[in-house]
Design a binder for these strands. Structure first.
Lengths: 335, 335
DNA sequence: CGTGGAAGG
DNA sequence: CCTTGCACG
């Protein structure tokens, strides 16, 4: 460095950077808009050609420490012989990397309904192929948004897609698999959005969906699995008071759900079996360590035609299965 | 599962998914647009609450296996006493996570010029503060794009920002630090873009830059450090033939560089010292393992006024320092 | 907080 | 291939 005789070497200021306020160009420097909180949680492993990033939320499931079996029976004492699982995976590709398909193997359901795969058909990774299961997809037109998947051991008699409203159907929000004794509806109900910006659209879903289910139910009993994007009652959400004007717990959405159950005579499998159980949720925001603190919402359901009441055995929320901000919901039937 | 007496359980097809071609909505399913190749390179460490993602490119530097010292002298036999480093970091925040600041400590230059910090001032992480250095920033108005940083042990007599063309100056492409005996120009020359879409803009830079440097040079000698975004001669690029119509090696860009050196009487420090050394690059695309194969470009330079020829000792390309798709360029002077 | 895609390189 | 902001949840 050129030894500057006149100017003493100033110690740099310890807390602020020296700036370019005159014509630097960055006008917004003083009013931070949305500071990323992701920042510096990375650790570097010396001498290894990789970066390992510590995620804040738990992503791995201890499959061996939990029991995926079930000894439930119907009211008439019949053992279950049909297991249907449902999971909003919040991005199928990330979910696979976090071991999501291991869940399929450990749970070993007859049917697995997936929601929010966020993956167009052409981008499905090869691992989605699982021997022993037929696979069906209803991807969104918009890449990386919404979308459904279905794994099934028995090939359905038929599959159909969509609810009959183009705006919804191009998003991959509904598929119907017809089996011998029932219709299975795999559904991902639209979200009302931050600040309820899409509440109108959300509420357009309800009558059409109700009509569709009613129509199906007039032909064969119906089992609906999926993310209904609403916590039905106060018991279904950790903070009912503060969420009354938030997406997923507005009166309009809750009423729509009640109306659906009533008008088609559907049963909420989990709540039917466990009418008073509190703290039973299927979704926790990734933020603020909500899952660890069980600040959750019950948004994912198995609903069944009343005609299937005598076939219903149990419905479990797999809150110890990780890999998404939702957990799987598993239902047991004797058919 | 309902035992279906009539329908035999079909084995699922082994290679293709069963589809929704009728009214599924995903019209582009058969013509993949841009398939992510990142896909399934993740490894899951059981029982650890994190995901470790193996990056394809090397990101960690073995600082202890290399010598950041230098025994070069001026032509007159004087030892160097000023070290200036320059590095296009391709995203300051990612670079920091990859240990970029460790380089500052190991190299310990008097001045470090950074280019492409891709970070507005308000989003600079706290770690950028390094005791013993003054810091200056020239961030782009557009968040996450271009931008410069400067670390300096001695506080400059003055700092100025921009070249005098608003379109460039709002992008954080030039800063000038005035020291007692020279001007230091930290620069990130605009890229001509894929398919040369911004070649016109790129070429507008040259005359203005030349004029500015010439003007500075008339007052004090100049040292220019940064990413000139051009490989000057065939020796400065691994594949000259196939890149003649690609950004960074068009005749127009190369001629502009020649013209700059000639009109201001500047010396390309590295090439001056090593006129015949081949395979000496400062940039390798992340794609196709280019760096491992040394398929690179020399885009980063230290240029000096001819008046400083007797002060110049050496210029080194730190090709074994990782953390960006560019490597640092270090120059040694006796002042 | 985390997923996926877009622009830019 | 990799970084950044962005939309969405």
């Amino acid at each position: 460095m050129p030894p500057k005789k006149k100017t003493k070497v100033d110690p740099p200021q310890s807390s602020s950077d020296e700036g370019n306020s005159d014509h630097s160009g960055n006008k917004s420097a003083n009013k931070p808009k949305r500071v990323r909180k992701k920042s510096a949680k990375a650790t570097i492993t010396e001498n290894e050609n990789k970066t390992s990033k510590t995620l804040q939320n738990k992503t791995t499931t201890e499959f061996l420490n939990q029991d995926f079996n079930n000894v439930s029976k119907t009211v008439d004492g019949e053992n279950w012989n049909l297991k249907i699982a449902s999971w909003n995976v919040d991005g199928l590709r990330a979910w696979i990397k976090k071991g999501g398909l291991d869940y399929l193997h450990h749970e070993n359901p007859d049917i697995l309904c997936l929601q929010e795969i966020k993956c167009s058909k052409s981008k499905l990774p090869p691992e989605v192929e699982v021997p022993g299961f037929h696979r069906y997809w209803n991807s969104s037109e918009a890449d990386g948004y919404a979308g459904l998947g279905l794994y099934t051991k028995v090939k359905p008699e038929s599959i159909s897609y969509g609810i009959g409203i183009p705006d919804f159907d191009k998003e991959g929000r509904l598929m119907i698999a017809e089996y011998e004794k029932f219709y299975l509806v795999n559904v991902y109900v639209p979200n009302a959005g931050r600040k309820l910006v899409t509440l109108d659209k959300r509420l357009q879903w309800n009558p059409k969906f109700q009509e569709l289910v009613k129509d199906l139910d007039s032909k064969k009993p119906v089992i609906i699995c999926g993310d209904m994007n609403v916590a039905h009652q106060e018991i279904d959400i950790a903070n009912p008071k503060s969420n009354k004007r938030n997406a997923g717990f507005t009166q309009e959405e809750r009423d729509g759900f009640s109306e659906l159950l009533k008008s088609v005579s559907l049963t909420d499998g989990f709540r039917h079996k466990y009418p008073d159980v509190k703290g039973a949720y299927t979704f926790w925001t990734y933020m603020a360590n909500a899952r660890k603190k069980n600040i959750g919402w019950r948004l994912d359901y198995c609903l069944l035609s009343e005609k299937l009441s005598s076939n219903f055995c149990d419905c479990c929320l797999r809150s110890e299965v990780f890999g998404s901000d939702h957990c799987p919901v598993v239902s047991f039937f004797h058919m």
